[in-house]
Protein backbone atom coordinates (compact mmCIF):
# COMPACT_ATOMS: atom_id res chain seq x y z
CA UNK A 1 0.00 0.00 0.00
CA UNK A 2 2.56 2.56 1.10
CA UNK A 3 4.95 1.20 -1.51
CA UNK A 4 2.37 2.01 -4.16
CA UNK A 5 1.83 5.56 -2.90
CA UNK A 6 5.58 6.14 -2.71
CA UNK A 7 5.96 4.85 -6.24
CA UNK A 8 3.17 7.13 -7.46
CA UNK A 9 4.78 10.18 -5.87
CA UNK A 10 8.29 9.37 -7.07
CA UNK A 11 7.17 8.59 -10.60
CA UNK A 12 5.15 11.81 -10.75
CA UNK A 13 8.25 13.71 -9.71
CA UNK A 14 10.33 11.91 -12.30
CA UNK A 15 7.80 12.72 -15.01
CA UNK A 16 7.76 16.37 -13.97
CA UNK A 17 11.55 16.51 -14.08
CA UNK A 18 11.74 14.84 -17.47
CA UNK A 19 9.03 17.15 -18.80
CA UNK A 20 11.08 20.13 -17.69
CA UNK A 21 14.23 18.64 -19.18
CA UNK A 22 12.40 18.03 -22.44
CA UNK A 23 11.48 21.73 -22.49
CA UNK A 24 15.03 22.82 -21.80
CA UNK A 25 16.95 20.50 -24.11
CA UNK A 26 17.06 21.21 -27.80
CA UNK A 27 19.36 21.97 -30.71
CA UNK A 28 19.14 25.70 -30.09
CA UNK A 29 21.10 26.39 -26.93
CA UNK A 30 18.87 28.65 -24.85
CA UNK A 31 19.52 29.96 -21.35
CA UNK A 32 17.48 28.45 -18.51
CA UNK A 33 16.00 31.70 -17.19
CA UNK A 34 15.54 33.10 -20.64
CA UNK A 35 13.65 30.08 -21.92
CA UNK A 36 11.35 29.62 -18.92
CA UNK A 37 10.61 33.34 -18.97
CA UNK A 38 9.81 33.30 -22.65
CA UNK A 39 7.67 30.19 -22.26
CA UNK A 40 5.52 31.75 -19.57
CA UNK A 41 5.35 35.31 -20.83
CA UNK A 42 5.31 34.72 -24.56
CA UNK A 43 7.75 37.60 -24.88
CA UNK A 44 11.25 37.35 -26.17
CA UNK A 45 10.83 37.08 -29.93
CA UNK A 46 12.30 33.92 -31.38
CA UNK A 47 12.97 32.37 -27.97
CA UNK A 48 9.27 32.52 -27.12
CA UNK A 49 8.43 31.09 -30.52
CA UNK A 50 10.82 28.19 -29.97
CA UNK A 51 9.57 27.52 -26.44
CA UNK A 52 5.85 27.84 -27.08
CA UNK A 53 5.49 26.47 -30.57
CA UNK A 54 8.27 23.89 -30.81
CA UNK A 55 9.46 22.68 -27.41
CA UNK A 56 6.15 22.83 -25.51
CA UNK A 57 4.15 20.71 -27.97
CA UNK A 58 7.02 18.22 -28.16
CA UNK A 59 7.21 17.83 -24.40
CA UNK A 60 3.42 17.65 -24.08
CA UNK A 61 3.17 14.99 -26.75
CA UNK A 62 5.99 13.00 -25.16
CA UNK A 63 4.08 13.03 -21.89
CA UNK A 64 0.74 12.17 -23.48
CA UNK A 65 1.94 9.52 -25.91
CA UNK A 66 3.91 7.78 -23.18
CA UNK A 67 1.06 7.87 -20.69
CA UNK A 68 -1.38 6.53 -23.23
CA UNK A 69 0.92 3.68 -24.29
CA UNK A 70 1.75 2.68 -20.72
CA UNK A 71 -1.89 2.77 -19.70
CA UNK A 72 -3.21 0.82 -22.65
CA UNK A 73 -0.44 -1.75 -22.26
CA UNK A 74 -1.40 -2.28 -18.62
CA UNK A 75 -5.10 -2.48 -19.48
CA UNK A 76 -4.58 -4.94 -22.34
CA UNK A 77 -2.34 -7.12 -20.21
CA UNK A 78 -4.94 -7.09 -17.45
CA UNK A 79 -7.77 -7.94 -19.79
CA UNK A 80 -5.94 -10.73 -21.60
CA UNK A 81 -4.15 -11.83 -18.42
CA UNK A 82 -0.99 -11.98 -20.45
CA UNK A 83 2.17 -9.95 -19.82
CA UNK A 84 2.98 -9.92 -23.55
CA UNK A 85 -0.10 -7.97 -24.61
CA UNK A 86 0.95 -4.50 -25.73
CA UNK A 87 -0.44 -2.11 -28.37
CA UNK A 88 2.79 -2.20 -30.38
CA UNK A 89 3.47 -5.90 -30.17
CA UNK A 90 -0.03 -7.09 -31.02
CA UNK A 91 -0.39 -4.81 -34.03
CA UNK A 92 -2.72 -2.15 -32.63
CA UNK A 93 -0.21 0.64 -33.22
CA UNK A 94 0.65 -0.42 -36.75
CA UNK A 95 -3.03 -0.73 -37.62
CA UNK A 96 -3.61 2.76 -36.27
CA UNK A 97 -0.73 3.94 -38.45
CA UNK A 98 -2.36 2.31 -41.45
CA UNK A 99 -5.60 4.15 -40.66
CA UNK A 100 -3.73 7.44 -40.35
CA UNK A 101 -1.75 6.94 -43.56
CA UNK A 102 -4.88 5.97 -45.48
CA UNK A 103 -6.72 9.09 -44.38
CA UNK A 104 -3.70 11.27 -45.24
CA UNK A 105 -3.17 9.75 -48.66
CA UNK A 106 -6.82 9.65 -49.69
CA UNK A 107 -7.20 13.29 -48.73
CA UNK A 108 -9.77 12.42 -46.07
CA UNK A 109 -7.55 13.98 -43.42
CA UNK A 110 -7.70 17.30 -45.22
CA UNK A 111 -11.50 17.24 -45.49
CA UNK A 112 -12.17 17.75 -41.78
CA UNK A 113 -9.90 18.19 -38.81
CA UNK A 114 -10.85 15.07 -36.85
CA UNK A 115 -10.59 12.74 -39.83
CA UNK A 116 -6.96 11.85 -39.06
CA UNK A 117 -7.36 10.75 -35.43
CA UNK A 118 -10.70 9.11 -36.23
CA UNK A 119 -9.18 7.03 -39.02
CA UNK A 120 -6.30 5.99 -36.78
CA UNK A 121 -8.85 5.12 -34.11
CA UNK A 122 -10.78 2.94 -36.55
CA UNK A 123 -7.59 1.12 -37.54
CA UNK A 124 -6.67 0.55 -33.91
CA UNK A 125 -10.18 -0.62 -32.97
CA UNK A 126 -10.17 -3.18 -35.76
CA UNK A 127 -6.84 -4.56 -34.54
CA UNK A 128 -7.93 -4.71 -30.89
CA UNK A 129 -11.07 -6.62 -31.85
CA UNK A 130 -9.04 -9.00 -33.98
CA UNK A 131 -6.53 -9.58 -31.17
CA UNK A 132 -9.24 -10.20 -28.57
CA UNK A 133 -10.92 -12.61 -30.94
CA UNK A 134 -7.74 -14.47 -31.85
CA UNK A 135 -6.36 -14.66 -28.31
CA UNK A 136 -9.56 -16.32 -27.14
CA UNK A 137 -11.09 -16.45 -23.67
CA UNK A 138 -8.04 -17.95 -21.99
CA UNK A 139 -5.49 -15.54 -23.38
CA UNK A 140 -2.89 -18.05 -24.51
CA UNK A 141 0.47 -16.39 -25.14
CA UNK A 142 1.09 -18.28 -28.35
CA UNK A 143 -2.20 -17.28 -29.96
CA UNK A 144 -1.66 -13.69 -28.89
CA UNK A 145 1.85 -13.44 -30.31
CA UNK A 146 0.93 -15.15 -33.57
CA UNK A 147 -2.09 -12.89 -34.00
CA UNK A 148 0.12 -9.90 -33.22
CA UNK A 149 2.73 -10.89 -35.80
CA UNK A 150 0.09 -11.40 -38.47
CA UNK A 151 -1.71 -8.13 -37.77
CA UNK A 152 1.53 -6.11 -37.54
CA UNK A 153 2.90 -7.58 -40.75
CA UNK A 154 -0.32 -7.00 -42.65
CA UNK A 155 -0.79 -3.45 -41.42
CA UNK A 156 2.89 -2.65 -42.04
CA UNK A 157 2.77 -4.04 -45.56
CA UNK A 158 -0.39 -2.13 -46.41
CA UNK A 159 1.07 1.07 -44.97
CA UNK A 160 4.17 0.64 -47.14
CA UNK A 161 2.01 -0.11 -50.15
CA UNK A 162 -0.09 3.01 -49.69
CA UNK A 163 3.00 5.18 -49.21
CA UNK A 164 4.73 3.60 -52.20
CA UNK A 165 1.77 4.41 -54.41
CA UNK A 166 1.57 8.00 -53.22
CA UNK A 167 2.19 10.72 -55.81
CA UNK A 168 4.29 12.50 -53.19
CA UNK A 169 7.99 11.58 -53.45
CA UNK A 170 8.52 12.15 -49.74
CA UNK A 171 5.76 9.77 -48.69
CA UNK A 172 7.83 6.65 -49.28
CA UNK A 173 10.53 7.97 -46.97
CA UNK A 174 7.95 8.06 -44.22
CA UNK A 175 7.49 4.33 -43.81
CA UNK A 176 10.12 4.45 -41.09
CA UNK A 177 8.36 7.28 -39.30
CA UNK A 178 5.05 5.44 -39.16
CA UNK A 179 6.75 2.25 -37.93
CA UNK A 180 9.09 3.84 -35.41
CA UNK A 181 7.46 7.07 -34.31
CA UNK A 182 8.94 10.51 -33.76
CA UNK A 183 8.05 13.69 -31.93
CA UNK A 184 10.24 15.98 -34.01
CA UNK A 185 8.68 19.26 -35.16
CA UNK A 186 5.19 18.56 -33.89
CA UNK A 187 3.09 21.62 -33.16
CA UNK A 188 0.28 22.59 -30.79
CA UNK A 189 -2.11 21.73 -33.62
CA UNK A 190 -1.15 18.10 -33.13
CA UNK A 191 -1.61 18.37 -29.38
CA UNK A 192 -5.13 19.76 -29.74
CA UNK A 193 -5.96 17.17 -32.35
CA UNK A 194 -4.94 14.21 -30.19
CA UNK A 195 -5.74 15.44 -26.70
CA UNK A 196 -9.53 14.92 -26.64
CA UNK A 197 -9.22 11.35 -27.89
CA UNK A 198 -6.42 10.60 -25.47
CA UNK A 199 -8.42 11.94 -22.53
CA UNK A 200 -11.47 9.98 -23.60
CA UNK A 201 -9.42 6.82 -24.06
CA UNK A 202 -7.66 7.18 -20.72
CA UNK A 203 -10.99 7.80 -19.00
CA UNK A 204 -12.43 4.61 -20.45
CA UNK A 205 -9.34 2.57 -19.61
CA UNK A 206 -9.13 3.85 -16.03
CA UNK A 207 -12.75 2.73 -15.56
CA UNK A 208 -11.74 -0.88 -16.20
CA UNK A 209 -9.76 -1.22 -12.95
CA UNK A 210 -12.21 -3.21 -10.85
CA UNK A 211 -13.18 -5.47 -13.72
CA UNK A 212 -9.52 -6.22 -14.43
CA UNK A 213 -8.92 -7.03 -10.76
CA UNK A 214 -11.73 -9.57 -10.84
CA UNK A 215 -10.41 -11.05 -14.08
CA UNK A 216 -7.31 -12.06 -12.12
CA UNK A 217 -9.38 -15.11 -11.14
CA UNK A 218 -10.56 -15.86 -14.68
CA UNK A 219 -13.64 -14.98 -16.68
CA UNK A 220 -16.17 -17.23 -14.92
CA UNK A 221 -15.15 -16.06 -11.48
CA UNK A 222 -15.22 -12.43 -12.62
CA UNK A 223 -18.69 -12.73 -14.10
CA UNK A 224 -20.00 -14.54 -11.05
CA UNK A 225 -18.71 -11.64 -8.97
CA UNK A 226 -20.83 -9.25 -11.01
CA UNK A 227 -18.40 -8.08 -13.70
CA UNK A 228 -20.09 -7.34 -17.00
CA UNK A 229 -17.51 -8.76 -19.37
CA UNK A 230 -19.17 -7.41 -22.51
CA UNK A 231 -19.05 -3.91 -21.08
CA UNK A 232 -15.46 -4.40 -19.93
CA UNK A 233 -14.46 -5.58 -23.40
CA UNK A 234 -16.13 -2.54 -24.96
CA UNK A 235 -14.26 -0.22 -22.58
CA UNK A 236 -10.95 -1.87 -23.49
CA UNK A 237 -11.59 -1.76 -27.22
CA UNK A 238 -12.83 1.84 -27.34
CA UNK A 239 -10.35 3.07 -24.74
CA UNK A 240 -7.30 1.50 -26.36
CA UNK A 241 -8.37 2.43 -29.87
CA UNK A 242 -9.10 6.02 -28.95
CA UNK A 243 -5.94 6.56 -26.91
CA UNK A 244 -3.50 4.64 -29.11
CA UNK A 245 -5.16 5.81 -32.32
CA UNK A 246 -4.75 9.46 -31.38
CA UNK A 247 -1.19 8.88 -30.22
CA UNK A 248 -0.16 7.12 -33.43
CA UNK A 249 -1.92 9.72 -35.60
CA UNK A 250 0.39 12.45 -34.30
CA UNK A 251 3.55 10.60 -33.31
CA UNK A 252 3.68 7.34 -35.25
CA UNK A 253 3.91 3.89 -33.71
CA UNK A 254 6.24 3.79 -30.73
CA UNK A 255 6.76 0.23 -29.59
CA UNK A 256 7.52 -1.57 -26.34
CA UNK A 257 6.46 1.19 -23.93
CA UNK A 258 3.26 -0.68 -23.08
CA UNK A 259 5.22 -3.87 -22.57
CA UNK A 260 8.10 -2.70 -20.43
CA UNK A 261 6.41 -0.31 -18.06
CA UNK A 262 3.52 -2.45 -16.76
CA UNK A 263 5.85 -5.35 -16.25
CA UNK A 264 8.48 -3.28 -14.49
CA UNK A 265 5.97 -1.61 -12.17
CA UNK A 266 3.71 -4.59 -11.44
CA UNK A 267 5.65 -5.72 -8.34
CA UNK A 268 5.20 -2.28 -6.80
CA UNK A 269 1.42 -2.65 -6.72
CA UNK A 270 1.35 -6.27 -5.61
CA UNK A 271 0.21 -7.32 -9.06
CA UNK A 272 -3.19 -5.63 -8.83
CA UNK A 273 -4.25 -4.52 -12.32
CA UNK A 274 -6.36 -1.61 -11.06
CA UNK A 275 -3.47 -0.13 -9.10
CA UNK A 276 -1.11 -0.74 -12.00
CA UNK A 277 -3.09 1.43 -14.44
CA UNK A 278 -2.15 4.92 -13.17
CA UNK A 279 1.38 3.81 -12.38
CA UNK A 280 1.93 2.38 -15.86
CA UNK A 281 0.67 5.65 -17.36
CA UNK A 282 3.26 7.59 -15.37
CA UNK A 283 5.96 5.07 -16.21
CA UNK A 284 5.12 5.23 -19.90
CA UNK A 285 5.25 9.03 -19.84
CA UNK A 286 8.66 8.92 -18.17
CA UNK A 287 9.96 6.36 -20.68
CA UNK A 288 8.87 8.28 -23.78
CA UNK A 289 10.02 11.64 -22.41
CA UNK A 290 13.40 10.11 -21.57
CA UNK A 291 13.65 8.44 -24.97
CA UNK A 292 12.79 11.69 -26.73
CA UNK A 293 15.42 13.55 -24.73
CA UNK A 294 17.96 10.86 -25.58
CA UNK A 295 17.05 11.13 -29.26
CA UNK A 296 17.94 14.83 -29.15
CA UNK A 297 21.12 14.33 -27.14
CA UNK A 298 22.52 11.42 -29.13
CA UNK A 299 21.87 12.81 -32.60
CA UNK A 300 20.61 16.39 -32.39
CA UNK A 301 20.56 16.96 -36.14
CA UNK A 302 19.49 13.54 -37.32
CA UNK A 303 15.82 13.04 -36.38
CA UNK A 304 16.58 9.66 -34.82
CA UNK A 305 13.29 7.80 -34.42
CA UNK A 306 11.79 7.33 -30.97
CA UNK A 307 10.97 3.70 -31.58
CA UNK A 308 14.65 2.97 -32.11
CA UNK A 309 15.39 3.80 -28.50
CA UNK A 310 12.30 2.18 -26.98
CA UNK A 311 13.02 -0.97 -28.99
CA UNK A 312 16.66 -0.97 -27.84
CA UNK A 313 15.37 -1.14 -24.28
CA UNK A 314 12.21 -3.10 -25.00
CA UNK A 315 13.33 -5.92 -27.26
CA UNK A 316 15.84 -7.49 -24.84
CA UNK A 317 13.17 -7.12 -22.19
CA UNK A 318 10.70 -8.95 -24.37
CA UNK A 319 13.16 -11.79 -24.93
CA UNK A 320 13.72 -11.99 -21.20
CA UNK A 321 9.95 -12.27 -20.64
CA UNK A 322 9.64 -15.01 -23.23
CA UNK A 323 12.59 -16.80 -21.66
CA UNK A 324 10.84 -16.82 -18.33
CA UNK A 325 7.52 -17.94 -19.81
CA UNK A 326 9.25 -20.79 -21.61
CA UNK A 327 9.25 -22.82 -18.44
CA UNK A 328 5.60 -22.09 -17.69
CA UNK A 329 4.10 -22.91 -21.05
CA UNK A 330 5.44 -25.88 -22.92
Amino acid sequence: MTLRITALVLLSLLVALLFLASLLIGPAALGLKQSIGALLSGEGGPVALVMQEIRLPRALLGLLVGAVLGLSGAAMQGFLRNPLAEPGLVGVSSSAALGAVLSLQTGLAASFALALPLSALAGAALAVLLVLFMAGPHGGALALILAGIAISALAGALTSLVLNLSPNPFAVMEIVYWMMGSLADRSMTHVWLALPFMILGCGLLLATGRGLDALTLGEDAARSMGVDLARLRLLIVLGTASAVGASVAVAGAVGFVGLVMPHLLRPLVGGRPSHLLPLAALGGAAMVLAADIAVRLIAPDQDLKLGVLTALVGAPFFLHLLWRMRGVEA
Partner: peptide, 8 residues
Protein backbone atom coordinates in the same frame (compact mmCIF):
# COMPACT_ATOMS: atom_id res chain seq x y z
CA UNK B 1 3.61 17.99 -53.82
CA UNK B 2 0.13 16.55 -54.24
CA UNK B 3 -0.71 13.80 -51.77
CA UNK B 4 0.16 14.34 -48.15
CA UNK B 5 3.47 13.67 -46.50
CA UNK B 6 4.65 14.17 -42.99
CA UNK B 7 7.96 15.44 -44.34
CA UNK B 8 6.24 18.48 -45.77
Amino acid sequence: YPGASRSE
